[in-house]
């Protein structure tokens, strides 16, 4: 079964062109012109990746993103008009895994999608279970337990946690995490890491404001500890 992509974009010509370009990659692409249509299509057949333009008529991209996140951990790529405003952080806070700024080259988009798809399927089986205090990771099953209770993480959050866990005690710089989790080079956007760490903390920490597991090493990066 091929990879299915849902592209939510109100500009018909862009939607059509993106669809053509992505289909060239061998993926099947469905287009939605509004958030409402996207929700309907999404529930009919859950896609592997969702592409959302923030500027949508009716319910906007942030809202759509939050709606989808309630029921699914599907990878989401946001398309923003500019990267300076709070749009990027707001999109990531709403649950997006990555973002692109218009106008982007379709090659860039397919590279982003490939990186996200890679993340869905953990590459190295390696460890069976990793324990950090009351946190327990089972990479094989893709599950995380806190105090024995399962914690629901998106795939990117899970991947981020695995990267931190597999090198116990190692401090990861933002560039390293951008490279390992998102496949970005030196010029990736550090806000991706920061927002995902923040999201991760709200799920795995008892008090996200005073993290005990996912800690910041000032001036160096992030580390996972017991």
């Amino acid at each position: 079964m091929g990879t299915r992509i849902l592209a939510v974009e109100d500009d018909e010509r862009i939607r059509e062109a993106v669809k053509l370009a992505l289909e060239d990659e061998g993926w099947s692409v469905e287009g939605a012109a509004s958030g409402e249509e996207a929700v309907e299509l999404f529930h009919r057949q859950v896609p592997d990746v969702v592409l959302i333009d923030i500027m949508l008529p009716g319910i906007d991209g942030f809202e759509l993103c939050r709606t989808l996140r309630k029921s699914s951990d599907v990878p989401i790529v946001m398309v923003t008009a500019r990267n300076d405003t709070h749009d990027v952080v707001a999109g990531l806070e709403a649950g997006a895994d990555d973002y692109l700024t218009k106008p982007f080259a379709p090659k860039e988009l397919s590279a982003r999608i490939r990186a996200l798809l890679r993340r869905i399927r953990p590459t190295q089986p390696g460890h069976e279970r990793l324990v950090f205090g009351d946190l327990e990771l089972i990479p094989e099953e893709g599950t995380v337990l806190r105090g024995g209770q399962p914690v629901h993480l998106t795939r990117t959050e899970f991947r981020l946690l695995c990267e931190l866990a597999e090198n116990r005690g190692k401090v990861f710089s933002r560039e390293e995490l951008l490279d390992r989790v998102w496949g970005y080079d030196y010029f990736g956007d550090g806000r991706l890491v920061d927002v995902h760490i923040r999201r991760l903390r709200t799920k795995v920490e008892i008090d996200a404001a005073a993290p005990r597991h996912v800690v910041t090493v000032r001036g160096l990066g992030y580390r996972l500890q017991s």
Binding site: D11, R13, I14, E16, A17, V18, L20, A21, D24, A81, K102, P103, F104, A105, P106, K107
Partner: peptide, 14 residues
């Protein structure tokens, strides 16, 4: 200009 540019670059790529 960005919207037509998106369409243009995607189409050129195809």
């Amino acid at each position: 200009l960005r919207s037509p540019l998106m369409t243009l670059s995607a189409s050129v790529e195809v």
